[in-house]
Design a binder for these strands. Structure first.
Length: 1044
RNA sequence: GCCCGGGUGGUGGAAUGGUAGACACGCAGGACUUAAAAUCCUGUGACCGUAGAGGUCGUACGGGUUCGAGUCCCGUCCCGGGCACCA
């Protein structure tokens, strides 16, 4: 009986469901293993073949670990808040919860089809109030904590209040806003309750603050930096402006040091760690205050990583947006500064990038005073200094910094060497730290270490600066002006935020009439009736809730804990569940989340760890990035107006021109230069090519022709289309008009075709602006040839004509790009599963190549995997459907084949090399079939090994073998090296590193035996050709190399 | 410009410093068939060669280390991804 996945797969899927095969208990003595996939956003497009790649690989690991005696947590859920559902709601009025629910159903069906071992009883959805109750709860914990630098961790704000009442904030080392004032206990106690609350916000780990955001008026929302591309929104391409808004913010900067240090503890890919390090951007240096000459009280603070170069600072540069610029600019320089500021404001990011090498700037007319030597140095502004980074000011040291050097050269500012080891300062800056300082007052003669210590100490004594560590990392904006997200559990009273009571959680999203911002620009939640909170003791009207919602990363920052204890109504996760599952052992997902999700999650996890709620500082021990599956897109070329002119010129009119002489030929500026498209020297006919819909144009040309005394032939594009594959017909029309005496020729019939597509291989004859390149659904294209029968039903090809190639076929071009519905290159797993079965689909996805690498999807090779599964099945079940597995004792050869496979597959799963596992199974099957072997002692272990890859087939054959419980609970076969031993070893023999032949040697042979045997070989002597042997190398079990 | 990947047959890819190209696709030839499909068998890096003898070249390019390099080191080029005047 043939292998029939269509019969066996649904059967076992429902059996697993009935048996609850994949439900996992928290209560077991078994060692645990927690494997996790990044959960998907359930988009309306459904699952495509790229999604399951990581899921299949992790499912194999999950099943493998289970076979090895682990209690495996392999959960799945949905990151179900998100913008697409909201956009859809705006367009259709359908509540995002409804469309999200539908999308999830579809995802679930597709996922179920592939036979994953997910424990669906633990599914989570971030948009479920029972889930986001705890997202809100964690938000409240963050609000109620501050980061104490002394303790190196988060502590309750209640402790802070107590401390303020007794000591003020003197001596407190805590993460806080830069503008936090110093105050005494008396100051504190004299404050009103509101004033105290506002001050506490400067310490809380989440807090509202005015911050610049990327505001997109068209979308009515705030976008993150990575949602903005080239100054417009990535989605929709709407303009984005910088706007100051009150936003909730997360004080992630408090954890910068720990987030950086934690990277050393975890087995994540180096590229992700590097990206996070860069994002955190720690730099150690000093802040120095420069007085401004003639402006008492004004000072400019700079941060420098090279305080040792301060004597070489010959000018200062401020960002154009720096707050002091207006004040410092002298009357004489004002117009220059104003025009520079105006110019920089007009420059797009792209321009700034493109001209990165160009030096621009303007002098303010003011001078700063170097605190060390009192030197007055000019203050410039330039847009290479960023307002948002550091203090927005740099002390420029042209001898040590190339950018400063360029600037100094351009504005003819002095370049002062400060180290005796600096070289060639005429040509470039030299950033060395070697040598001894010169021209450097206090530190002359010192080396780098001494200089930094001396200068920093001096600055601190003088109160002019201090050693400082600075991070690029900014606090994370946490508000979104959107509807479809978690409501923030806070309300506003007299301009001060307050949390709602814990017992009132979850704060459920209210109904709104529309999902758009209000007319006054408030977020959609402002539309909700009665969106107010009435705490105990307040009047019935209550206070307005926060109107913004949480960002997408809120719910995904802790979901890995919810899977451990998904139905807990008392806690986000019980201590016992967290203690058992501990943290994620292996996390798998795309690298695009490197600094979004993966950094914010680590931040929340550090916080939860500080408050004693989770057992580990880092939530995932190991992380692997799966590569992207790219799609192969197909494109058809649609003719533009210009094509028809070129077509007439090339295919139809050439002979006529040869005869009658061309007067006008098409060119790109044809319409302006010539009245008609074509005219002849010796015939009074003129030709116009245009669409039949252009009646006004045709009439105008007709009048012009009459006035000129020309006879006019109008050829419709549409009539050319109808005869596009037989240009003789058009030629005949031209011939007829040329020879006629009539004045005006125009087709009377209304053409049926409206657009023309041109086969790829014909397009090269025409100029490139003759065509638009349009995506064609890949289901209609086979080997770049368009299936015309299918194409006619496709909306793109409505009323279309096709110019076919010489073989009468229509070809398309193709490109590899990201798989996406809008590119019509999506391959849906359902079709593959339908045709070949889930097991085959799973194995083929693995067989494509290493999981971590991106690769284009190509279905061609799937028949190879299908053939393998049929052969494997065929070792158990005969052609007539009879069971052909015997209980005979296996031969040493069969055992050797089996154990080779056990070893390789075991090793390769551990190192996530699934493609080679599939190869090993193929080799095993090919070997056993050659030996006509069907013995239970061999096939049963092989079947268990195959089970993680092809679970349905394995379950079927496992039961046919007489087992009643699931193959998932079998035991992974143990490798026995004994079976691999053989009596002889075939040594490859190299002479001077070149392979010359093989020699079969007894495995017991000594090196001397081997040498004697090898030297006796005819091919060895022949290749040595009489040369003396200098060295004879035997690598035991591997190779022999003779050096001559 | 900086950081991280990667570059191996017609294609996807394999190879703890030890016979480069496993496994699969595709292609070619053959078997079965009236024929086709399916299936099975054989061959398949390039080149030279009278062969299934034998040989030369070959893992982006140029050097190096080594008995031996796709793999390690130095330099160059190209492709992909990320960041971008970060003081």
């Amino acid at each position: 009986m043939e292998y029939a996945p269509r019969d066996i797969e649904p059967k076992w899927r429902s059996w697993w469901k009935a048996q609850r095969t994949y439900e996992v208990s928290n209560d077991t003595r078994k060692p645990k293993f927690y494997i996790l996939n990044m959960f998907p956003y359930p988009s309306g497009a459904g699952l495509h073949v790229g999604h399951p790649l990581g899921y299949i690989a992790s499912d194999i690991v999950a099943r493998y670990k289970r076979l090895n005696g682990f209690n495996v947590l392999n959960p799945m859920g949905y990151d179900s808040f998100g913008l697409p559902a909201e956009q859809y709601a705006i367009q259709t009025g359908i509540h995002p919860a409804v469309s999200t629910d539908q999308n999830i159903k579809r995802y679930r069906e597709q996922l179920d089809n592939i036979g994953f071992s997910f424990d669906w009883s633990r599914e989570v959805r971030t948009s479920d109030p029972a889930y986001y109750k705890w997202t809100q709860w964690i938000f409240m914990q963050l609000y109620n904590h501050y980061f104490d630098q002394e303790a190196g961790k988060a502590l309750p704000v209640s402790g802070l209040v107590e401390r303020f009442g007794q000591h003020g904030n003197a001596g407190l080392r805590a993460a806080c806003d830069d503008d936090t004032p110093s105050f005494s206990a008396a100051d504190w106690n004299a404050m009103s309750d509101n004033e105290q609350q506002l001050l506490l916000l400067k310490y809380r780990l989440t807090f509202p603050e005015e911050s610049y955001v990327n505001w997109c008026p068209a979308l009515g929302t705030v976008l993150s930096n990575d949602e903005v591309k080239d100054g417009v929104s990535e989605r929709g391409g709407y303009p984005v402006e910088r706007k100051l808004m009150k936003q909730w913010s997360m004080r992630i900067t408090a954890y910068a040091d720990r987030l950086l240090a934690g990277l050393d503890e975890i087995d994540w890919s180096e590229s992700i760690k590097e990206q996070q390090r860069y994002w955190i951007g720690r730099s150690q240096g000093a802040s120095v205050r420069f007085a401004v000459d003639g402006h008492d009280g004004a000072s400019i603070e700079v941060f420098t990583t090279r305080v040792d170069t301060i004597y070489g600072a010959t000018f200062m540069v401020l960002a154009p947006e720096h707050e002091l610029v207006a004040r410092l600019t002298t009357a004489a320089q004002r117009s220059e500064i104003d025009s520079y500021i105006k110019w920089t404001a007009s420059r797009s990011d792209i321009e700034r990038m493109a001209e990165a090498k160009k030096v621009t700037g303007a002098f303010t007319g003011a001078f700063a005073v170097n605190p060390f030597n009192g030197a007055k140095i000019p203050i410039y502004i330039a847009d290479y200094v960023l307002a948002g980074y550091g203090t927005g000011a740099v002390m420029a040291v042209p001898s040590g910094d190339q950018r400063d050097w360029n600037f100094a050269k351009h504005f003819q500012l002095p370049i002062v060497p400060i180290l005796d080891a600096q070289q060639n300062l005429d040509e470039a800056a030299d950033p060395t730290k070697e040598g001894r300082y010169i021209n450097s007052g206090l530190i002359n003669g010192m080396d780098y270490e001494q200089a930094v210590a001396t200068l920093t100490q001096w600055l601190e004594q003088q109160g002019l600066g201090k050693g400082k560590v600075q991070y690029k990392l900014r606090n994370a904006v946490f508000s979104r002006q959107r509807y479809w997200g978690e409501p923030v559990p806070a309300y506003w009273k007299d301009g001060v935020p307050h949390l709602i009571e814990e017992q009132d959680l979850p704060l459920v999203l209210p109904a709104v009439d529309k999902y758009l911002p209000t007319e006054t620009g408030e977020p959609p939640l402002a539309r909700a009736d009665g969106w107010r909170y009435s705490p105990e003791g307040s009047d019935a009207i209550g206070y307005e809730y926060e109107l913004s919602t949480m960002p997408g990363w809120a719910g995904s920052s802790w979901y890995f804990y919810r899977y451990m204890d998904p139905h807990n109504t008392e806690e986000f996760c019980s201590a016992s569940a967290a203690a058992y599952w501990n943290s994620v052992d292996w996390y798998i997902g795309g690298s695009e989340h490197a600094v979004g999700h993966l950094l914010y999650s680590r931040f929340w996890n550090h916080f939860l760890y500080d408050t004693g709620r989770v057992p580990e500082r880092e939530f995932a021990k190991k992380l692997t990035n799966q590569g992207m599956i790219q799609g192969r897109s197909s494109f058809a070329f649609r003719a533009k107006e210009r094509f028809f002119e070129e077509y007439l010129w090339i295919k139809v009119l050439q002979p006529f021109f040869a005869e009658l002489g061309p007067l006008a030929i098409p060119s790109s500026n044809l319409e302006e230069s010539y009245t008609y498209d074509f005219a002849f020297e010796t015939n009074d006919l003129v030709i116009e090519v245009t669409s039949w819909k252009q009646t006004d144009k045709i009439e105008a040309i007709r009048q012009a022709a009459e006035a000129d005394g020309k006879r006019l032939l109008v050829l419709y594009n549409e009539e050319l289309i109808e005869n596009i594959n037989q240009h003789e017909i058009t030629a005949a029309k031209v011939r007829h008009a040329l020879n006629s005496r009539e004045r005006f020729f125009m087709s009377k019939e209304t053409p049926a075709a409206e657009q023309l597509f041109v086969s790829l291989d014909l397009t090269s004859k025409y100029s490139t602006d003759c065509f638009s390149k349009l995506h064609v659904d890949i289901s209609m294209v086979n080997d770049d040839v368009l299936d015309m029968d299918k194409a006619v039903y496709w909306p793109l090809f409505e009323k279309a004509g096709f110019k076919l190639n010489a073989e009468g076929r229509f070809t398309c071009s193709s490109e590899v790009e990201k798989m996406s519905k809008s590119k019509y290159n999506v391959v849906n797993p359902d079709d593959m599963v339908e045709q070949y079965g889930a097991d085959c689909f799973r194995m083929y996805e693995m067989f494509l190549g290493p999981v971590e690498m991106s690769k284009p999807w190509d279905t061609k090779g799937i028949t190879g995997v299908y053939g393998f599964l049929r052969k494997f099945w065929g070792m158990f079940v005969g052609e007539a459907g009879q069971w052909i597995v015997s209980d005979d004792a296996p031969t040493p050869d069969e055992l050797r084949v089996l154990h080779t496979c056990i070893k390789k597959v075991t090793d390769d799963i551990e190192r996530f090399s699934m493609n080679t596992c599939v190869s090993h199974f193929m080799i095993l099957t090919n070997d056993l079939r050659t030996q006509k072997s069907s013995k239970r002692a061999i096939l049963e272990p092989a079947l268990v090994m195959l089970a993680p890859f092809a679970p349905h087939l394995a379950e079927e054959l496992w039961h046919r073998m007489g087992h009643e419980t699931t193959v998932c609970d079998a035991s992974w076969p143990a490798f026995n090296a004994e079976y691999l031993k053989s009596d002889s070893i075939a040594y490859p023999v190299q002479i001077n590193g070149k392979h010359r032949g093989n020699v079969e040697v007894a495995s017991t042979a000594s090196n001397a035996d081997i040498e004697a045997l090898v030297m006796a070989q005819e091919f060895v002597q022949r290749n040595l050709n009489g040369q003396p042997v200098k060295k004879f190398i035997v690598v035991p079990g591997r190779i022999v190399n003779i050096v001559a």
